[in-house]
Amino acid sequence: MAQDIDRSDDDTDSAVRTFPKGTTIFREGQISDVAYIIKKGRVSIYRILNNKRVRLGERGPGEMVGEMGVITADPRGSNAEALEYTEALACDKRLLQTMLLKSPRPVQLLTGYLADRVRALSGQITDRPSGDPFLAVCRVTHLAWQVASRSEKPQLDYAELSRTIKDIVLLSQIEIDAIFERLKKLHLVAITDVKGNFPRKNILGTTKPGPSFVKERSVRLPDPDTFLAVAKNVSRDARDRQDFGVDLEFCDLGDFAREAGSSPDIIIKKIGYGEIPEKLFFFHKSASRDYIDAMGQEFFRQARRPRLTAADLERIDDITAVDNATLQEVFSVLGFHKVAVLAAMAGDAARDKIYKNLSKKIAGVVREEAAALANLDDDEAAAVEQELLERVKTIKGLAS
């Protein structure tokens, strides 16, 4: 809603403020001392409920954020974050009150009524267990279809499917209907309605059909093999929509790995190698205390590297777990060029390990040759990597 501000009385009551992308403009619970009219950029409004970020909407140029708290004198009921570089006109309480006092009495009463409504609705905002309700509904539907497809004429009863979705995703029927309507428009589901009617008798005793209603509704997946893949693409394309939604404020290791297209064991290795900053990871406080009590503090005072097994050696970067004596023996057999190939393809930690297990003179030669291998041949690199791993396994008695 565009705002028309009368600033003729006191031009010092407002000022343009700038917020770089990602800046928190205000936080939930803070004193509501100023509202903002956005001149440029976009602002996200959200709340944090039970470790979930509940998106309440976005505001753009000409729209106001933070006005309700200033009007009602309540603490901030939500958070505001700049989604991009934003310029906003700051309006303090005195300016807003002046604007309201200049408004007709009915407008003042309506403003108070709307503020009460916003306060009441804000208290009804809840979190949901799914960060993406659309994709969650699609996954439940796909699982249900896998069971139904075993029958001769597979189909899903819409009412029963809706009850299952409500139990798992905790959505209302209105939201479920909206999602299936969208899936129907995308031709991802086929919905069949069986209609019925209540017969009526007129004053002559003649029975005639009354208003029709949907007696039964069934759902089919025309292409179950591609259903989830298409649904994921639709969900990904809709991430920037302004609709109400929920995101987890924190994710666990498994979710992090899936988002990165990796696996938890590889992520753990990268954390151990220092390749991922530790500030990205958090522990659940009460669960952590219980685990510390169960294991004892002595358990955490020393970290032992797991015993080397054949399965541990899969790629060049895994040599960080190999002892120095073994690496020195292998490098002496491989020769300068192959070691240079290994250094050129290795990650930072593995490359440092290679150089530390060479004499200074040889390390200098290997560095120069590795730097010259700008266009490393993939087949040669794979062959040298395989030879390194096999030689290490042979020395450790792990060769098959």
Rank of each mutant, 00 (worst) to 15 (best):
D4E: 12
D11V: 15
T12L: 06
A15W: 07
T18N: 10
T23W: 01
T24K: 08
Y46S: 15
R47S: 03
R55M: 05
G57F: 04
V65A: 02
G66V: 12
M68D: 00
R76Q: 07
N79S: 05
E81W: 01
L83E: 10
Y85V: 08
T86W: 04
A90H: 08
A90M: 12
R94F: 10
Q97A: 09
Q97P: 02
T98S: 10
P104F: 12
P104R: 11
S122N: 15
I125E: 04
D127W: 12
R128K: 15
S130K: 10
P133H: 13
R139G: 02
V147F: 00
K153Q: 06
K153A: 06
Q155R: 12
S162I: 01
R163G: 07
I165A: 00
I168W: 08
V169L: 01
L170H: 15
E175A: 09
I179Y: 00
K184I: 00
A190N: 09
A190C: 05
V194G: 11
I203P: 00
I203V: 09
K208V: 08
R217I: 02
T226A: 13
Q242K: 11
D255F: 06
S262F: 01
I268V: 13
K269E: 12
G272M: 14
G272F: 12
E278N: 07
F281Y: 03
H284G: 11
A287N: 09
Y291R: 14
D312K: 15
R315S: 09
V330F: 05
V339K: 13
V341Q: 04
A344S: 06
G347R: 12
G347D: 14
K353G: 01
Y355Q: 05
K356R: 15
N357A: 00
K360W: 08
I362W: 06
V366P: 03
E368L: 12
E369H: 15
N375V: 13
D379H: 07
A383M: 08
Q386H: 10
E387K: 12
L388P: 01
K396G: 00
